[in-house]
């Protein structure tokens, strides 16, 4: 503490310590906030299986399942001061057919739809155009957190991703279910995914599975073409 330079270094050194401790407290404050996410509805509304190519020049043809679905969920309790963004995604799951070794009893899982819900403190990081950005920022003006963004209501939502299987066959697949997942991404602290067990104030996500359904048979060729030209 003799000269200015030493005082500068010592002050900065202690600042880094304080910053680390405050960050640890912020991360720990997540535990005090109850998490009670609920799903009130998750069901398929329209199922379709079509043949297509993985990319334009591919000579391989695969079957693709297009699963439309409806979803009602309330994730508003996941938004606290330390929430940066919430990643929500829906997967389709079905048991693996036979297989050997590690492939036995395995579950096929493929994402059909996902979304990122930013907290107002992270709006500037959203990967959207300037007009949508302005709208997003205005929607939370004057609010440091906005739990109402966690309320999801989708009706007959088209999937973002058409799914297939390494074998290229998904038509008439039985015992398929949809599952809703979430991933809380905090400013500081650990990432947390949807829980299966209760952890103190954090409740598990119940009702995240849809009823079992079967994928339909392949669409007839002319029907498939009509569908293709519309898209």
């Amino acid at each position: 503490m003799y000269s200015s330079l030493v005082r500068l270094q010592n002050t900065f050194s202690f600042f880094t310590t304080v910053a680390f401790v405050v960050a640890a407290f912020i991360a720990a404050s997540d535990l005090l906030a109850p998490r009670t996410p609920t799903v009130s509805l998750l069901k398929t509304t329209n199922l379709q299986v079509v043949r297509g190519r993985p990319h334009y020049y591919s000579s391989k043809k695969e079957e693709y399942a297009i699963i439309k679905f409806s979803l009602e969920a309330d994730f508003s309790s996941l938004f606290t001061w330390n929430t940066k963004q919430l990643f929500v995604y829906v997967t389709a799951e079905w048991p693996s057919a036979g297989g050997t070794g590690s492939g036995r009893n395995a579950t096929n899982q493929a994402v059909i739809w996902d979304t990122i819900i930013t907290a107002p403190s992270a709006d500037h990081l959203a990967n959207i155009g300037p007009v949508a950005m302005k709208k997003l920022k205005r929607s939370a003006q004057g609010k440091s957190i906005d739990p109402s963004r966690g309320k999801l209501s989708l009706k007959n939502q088209r999937p973002k991703y058409q799914i297939t299987h390494p074998s290229g066959k998904v038509a008439e697949q039985e015992d398929v279910v949809l599952r809703l997942h979430y991933n809380v991404q905090p400013w500081v602290g650990v990432l947390t995914w949807n829980q299966d067990e209760e952890f103190w104030k954090w409740k598990p996500l119940r009702g995240s599975l849809s009823k079992k359904f079967s994928l339909p048979a392949l669409k007839k060729k002319d029907e498939g073409k009509k569908e293709g030209s519309r898209v």
Partner: peptide, 28 residues
């Protein structure tokens, strides 16, 4: 040395509690 220790800890505590009570991480 005394001022650095006390003042920085105070700043950290104020930042944390203000941020937590107002639920505003940017403020903190």
């Amino acid at each position: 040395e005394f001022l650095v220790n006390v003042a920085l800890m105070l700043v950290g505590a104020i930042a944390f509690f203000a941020g937590y009570l107002l639920q505003d991480i940017k403020l903190a």
